[in-house]
Amino acid sequence: MDRNRKILISIFALLILSVMLAIIDISIKVQDDRDRDHRGMPFRTGPGVGIVRVEGPISIKSRSGPFDLSAGSESIVKRLDELSRNSSIKAIVLRINSPGGTVASVQEIYHKLWKIRKRNIPLIASMGDIATSGGYYIASACNLIFANYGTVTGSIGVIALSPNMKGLFEKLGIKMNVIKSGNYKDIMSSHRDLTKDESELLQEMIDTSYRRFLKDVALGRNQGISDIEPYADGRILNGETAQKLKLVDTIGTFDDAVDKAREMAKLDENSPVYDEYLTPFQQVLMSLDTMVRFGSTIKEGMDGGSAFTLEYRYRP
């Protein structure tokens, strides 16, 4: 009986905790809405501008599972799809803060944006701290690109990395037994040097992806490949230089991009902005998720990366 009483008290404690959490959660939401009101962005409905955020390295893997946290090309494409189907969304601003990502994931986002652009929904890219390589690739699908003076952009190119630990293996006396069905089956293995044939094969893959990159950027920017190629050697640029080289249209902030989107969609200057919304509780989970991802990035760096991938990514 005494044990049951204690269990019941524990359930009561959990109930009280959930009540407190709910009150805090809702109160923060209410406060957020009030802050938005004070910033002149009251919660309204009607025609407006949709915001899509591209944060961090891009990969296919969607992490929108249990906590509905958007990252990864699948969730970005899903968000774009939702906005393009919504009749209230008259323009989309793509906020990019990414060094790029895997080739396939970047191309998926690019093609989704291109489809939206074909439907005459104005697309504006707004670059944050960084929009390099794949980040620039997807920006090029937009009608206009806004960057800040200090935005790091450019880095047009493809990269594939794999550590060569042959020396270390030899030092430790470790030998790998490899039984393979073809010459190239263990390409990019870390326990041996790359052969000439393998190097040529990889170079061809990289060159093909690079040509696709150039072609798509040229198409998105309404320029010839020859106009872009001189700067497409992997160099990084700041926003100002990128504008001079016509890789960026305008120097401006995120707010400027939103205003331009309204103008292009012929919307009222106070028309609503539909940003991605996370509840305060989800924001806490998002920050935890970021910490976990930061930890796994360090681990990945120490491991030298377990999987070989081609990337449109700036890797300093």
């Binding site: 109930l15 709910a22 809702i26 109160s27 209410v30 809405d33 009030r34 919660f43």
Partner: peptide, 25 residues
């Protein structure tokens, strides 16, 4: 009293709340 509190909160977390929540609670 506990049921009134939990029902109000359960209903409130599902929707988008305004300042009215403080009156409601």
């Amino acid at each position: 009293a506990a049921v009134a509190l939990t029902e109000i909160l359960a209903f409130s977390i599902l929707g988008r709340e305004t300042g009215f929540f403080h009156y409601k609670i």
